[in-house]
Design a protein around this nucleic acid. Structure first.
Lengths: 333, 333
DNA sequence: TTGTAAGCGTTATCAT
DNA sequence: ATGATAACGCTTACAA
């Protein structure tokens, strides 16, 4: 490892001068600067980030808490996060969130990160307050189920989105609409479910508890859940189903195909995210466009404001769009 | 921020003792240990990782170089990396690799990472030698196009895989086989392409240059490329096409559908990765199963061996499996 | 069993 | 314009 001392010695200046050059201070004679730059070049010197962080109390790293790296909805958001973070010269340090290991986050991120971006997780108050105490900003993409004063978020207006989707289905003639979501109560799908129910009510439609299908994870579990449901009783209590995640909707599509249920003939299916795949399924999938990249950008902008300017973040919502495609049509009969 | 000094003062012991306790040294009286633990608890203390890294010269962070966070093949590998890294208590710091910004990696990772896992990138020799000089191990999932003595890799045997795939198509009666890949010459698709050509030759089939379709990125660009190709001349010079990436294959499927070309009736299509989606397309996709998670595990195991035991890594290959599904059948006519 | 103190590679204050 | 030097929070001989 080449240190600043080595550079200083090599260039025949003091360690301070090397720092000045590295940090672009304007108080260094051009000649000296060149000498130092040459030394840096010759030795292949790069400042040690750990040492720098220790001294400056800035890490230039932002933590990102995933739920599932394999979910293209979440990676789509990260794509936005990553691009924007790069512009700020910030590195992202990714962690998959596992509730039973939540306490580890405190040590993992200690002195490692200037702020943390969540993806809808409802952290334990104790954890949140730990970070609050040490002034580490938390900001969430996707509104967490459990609200906490220290964690503001950016999301779309799910109530409005669900209302549009439900109204769309209703206008086609659907009155019995099912819903499929991740079973975890603190999962971000829960927010979608709550708003779906409200939208149903506002539309004068009744939602029946047995029309809620819970599936553990993503595509495969949705496929299994739907297949089993159909096999148990091919007569479904709804003519359309909304899936909290697009991957789930694709699993449902696939299950219907394999079980001989025609979509959209026998059942209309809708998703909630507009991941790329949804325009390439057969049939193409009606869904809500979630502006992943833009929201990723805004999340980074916001947390950077918190970190560098001490901005007080607020909850904000971003526009969505209802994408009507082939998977939703008038119910038969 | 609570420091070790605060804890020491609060517990009425010296700073060293706090360190002993934190690092589970066995030379601390049980009573003192309890006192310290209580102080840690009460103050909400967590060791500052930056400071610890500086002293111990271990960061417990591993860099991961992505090409595209939006590609589920790559995120599938990361899923394996992440899971295994967690077991070693290592954090992953993700960077999207951009060739024109490659030099930045040196500073970004300086003092930040104990090793770096690549995903098939051919780094510039200068960059590789920089990390070699400072003893930062580099290890690649996916064999890079450009070989370098310092960068060993784990991958499947692409020649064998392509041979199996080509033989499968040949046995169905295909003699003209097209190939679609990312155009970048240093992209990991290139490795697949080279082995495909060898496999064609070994199978006694001729590969014609105009049967190589290059598409920039992933699903959408593959879709565009294929659509344009069909529109330009619906009579394709091949009866089957192998796509270097599954997402590309899905794009091709979609393009064929939209252009009125039937798969597998008019054209057989195969992929190379077996991402989850490939078993849910219409038709389901013949592809090569790439054991992403297992390879991710092994990559972490290997680099941990390099980091902690100074192991000399070697190139290794992992088993694959040919997944024959609906998208490849006997050519008509 | 516990404490003292040096040092990891920086930055930043204060002299010069 | 440049140079000493004291932190930053931690680990680890070595001393007590």
């Amino acid at each position: 490892m080449v240190t600043r001392d080595d550079v200083a010695r090599h260039a025949g200046v003091s360690v301070a001068v090397v720092s000045y050059v590295v940090n672009n201070k304007n108080n260094v004679k051009e000649e000296t600067r060149q000498k130092v730059l040459r030394a840096i070049e010759e030795l292949g010197y790069n400042p040690n980030m750990a040492a720098r962080s220790l001294k400056t109390r800035k890490t230039n790293q932002i933590g990102v808490l995933f739920n599932n790296l394999g979910n293209s909805f979440e990676t789509g958001i990260s794509l936005g996060l990553e691009q924007r973070a790069r512009q700020y010269d910030q590195s992202l340090i990714f962690q998959t969130y596992i509730r039973s290991e939540e306490h580890k986050l405190k040590s993992i991120f200690s002195g490692r990160t200037d702020g943390i971006i969540l993806m809808g997780q409802s952290l334990k108050p104790e954890t949140i307050e730990h970070f609050a105490k040490f002034g580490v900003p938390l900001y969430s993409v996707l509104k967490p189920v459990q609200d906490h004063a220290y964690v503001r978020s950016i999301d779309i207006d799910w109530y409005d989105a669900m209302l549009k989707l439900v109204e769309h289905l209703k206008s086609l003639g659907h009155h019995k609409i099912g819903f499929m979501a991740n079973a975890m109560h603190d999962h971000y799908h829960h927010v979608r479910f709550l708003h779906f129910r409200q939208a149903m009510e506002a539309s004068g439609l009744e939602f029946e508890e047995h029309s809620l299908l819970q599936a553990g994870g993503y595509l495969e579990s949705a496929y299994d859940r739907m297949s089993n449901r159909i096999k148990a009783n091919p007569k479904l209590p709804f003519t359309a189903i909304v899936c909290a995640g697009d991957l789930m909707a694709i699993g449902v599509l696939s299950a219907c195909k394999d079980c001989g249920l025609s979509v959209p003939g026998d059942l209309s299916v809708a998703g909630c995210e507009n991941i790329l795949m949804t325009s390439h399924t057969t049939p193409t999938l009606t869904t809500i466009h979630y502006p992943r990249k833009e929201i990723g950008y805004m999340a980074v902008d916001t947390i950077m404001g918190q970190i560098h300017n001490g901005d007080e973040p607020t909850d904000s919502t971003f526009g969505f769009e209802l994408m009507i495609r082939q998977s939703t049509v008038k119910p038969t009969g």
